[in-house]
Amino acid sequence: MFENMNVKKINEFINNVEIKDYVKYIDMLKNDKRKSVQKIALKLSKKLDDIKKEEERIEKLKIYEREGYNSGYKYIGGVDEAGRGPLAGPVVAAVVVLNEDTVIKGINDSKKLSEKKREELFEIIKKEAIDYGIGIVGNEEIDKFNILNATYMAMKKALNNLKNKPDYLLVDAEIIPNVGIPQNSIIQGDAKSISIAAASILAKVTRDKIMCEYDEIYPEYRFSKHKGYGTKEHYEAIEKYGITSIHRKSFLKSILNGD
């Protein structure tokens, strides 16, 4: 089949081959006498290995969801938050409900992804999810109720923004109080559960966008760069310009008290 095709034509052909046909064409290319064509076979073989590894990784991310389905739950929500640690801005939580057979290539703990990849997956998750909700709690409520309680408030807001109430929750390292839904708290859940990973991406991207909007209001603080976290640059801006209306006073007591 490939004997009368040059390398450029073979590459063009292979780039349009469906994954299910990879093995067939790998065998053909390997048997070609040309070294350059054999290299295409190796390249295609590596691509197939990478695809299989990614499929296996995603299947592992569904372990906790499968346990839930096997226990009779049907509407499983993954919950995570972003923004517990920063000195400024809100804490944002998200909950995502996925189909049992949903596959989202590249999905992972938001902290392990580039900003560009998170933004790509943000749109894919919203499209693929059966349901999702986002909850935002601002710095004034964080100061009033403390960050842990504010995080629970954001998670409850996210749940209230769903179309339907989940019958089971997978939560990253927390048990949300007083929601009346069975829960499984998973340490490092954003790296172990596909629905928690999806929630971590929605929460992170949403919060980052909010901080970029604040950057336009307070450009001297460069919120778009550090997203409100306690970087050297951020502390220097606070020392020079003081605190803003979005800073968490309870996180800056030593500065406010002049210590």
Rank of each mutant, 00 (worst) to 15 (best):
K127Y: 10
K116Y: 15
E128I: 09
E67S: 02
E100N: 06
I246V: 14
G138K: 02
E18K: 15
L48K: 14
I124P: 13
N146C: 01
V103L: 10
S250W: 02
P166S: 09
S250Y: 04
V23P: 02
K111V: 15
G242C: 10
V97A: 10
R66D: 11
L252A: 02
S254W: 01
E67M: 07
V171W: 15
F145N: 07
E59S: 12
K227Y: 01
H226I: 01
P86L: 08
K253R: 12
V103Q: 06
A199S: 07
P219G: 12
K165L: 03
F122I: 14
I175K: 13
K8M: 13
H247R: 05
P182M: 06
K43D: 10
G228Q: 05
A154R: 02
K47E: 15
P86A: 08
N11S: 10
F145R: 00
L61V: 04
D49F: 06
E115V: 07
I19M: 08
S45K: 14
A82H: 10
G189Q: 10
S245V: 07
G180K: 08
E65C: 04
V96A: 08
N6T: 12
M153W: 04
E216A: 14
Y218S: 03
A41D: 12
L48D: 05
L61M: 11
P177M: 14
R34H: 13
L202D: 09
E141Q: 02
L61F: 10
G77Q: 10
R222I: 06
L148E: 01
G85F: 13
A198K: 11
L48Q: 08
N178Q: 05
K204V: 08
K111W: 14
K240P: 09
V137D: 07
H234Y: 10
I107Y: 06
E239H: 05
K227C: 03
E120D: 12
K249G: 01
V97F: 04
L121P: 15
K111F: 15
A203R: 06
G133D: 05
T244Q: 07
C212M: 15
E59K: 12
R84N: 12
K24W: 03
L87A: 09
S195I: 06
I107Q: 08
M211C: 14
N108K: 11
L61A: 06
S36C: 13
A41H: 09
N164P: 02
S254M: 01
N4F: 14
K127G: 06
T231M: 12
G68R: 06
L29Y: 08
M153V: 03
V137I: 15
Y73R: 08
I196S: 12
I14Q: 13
K204F: 13
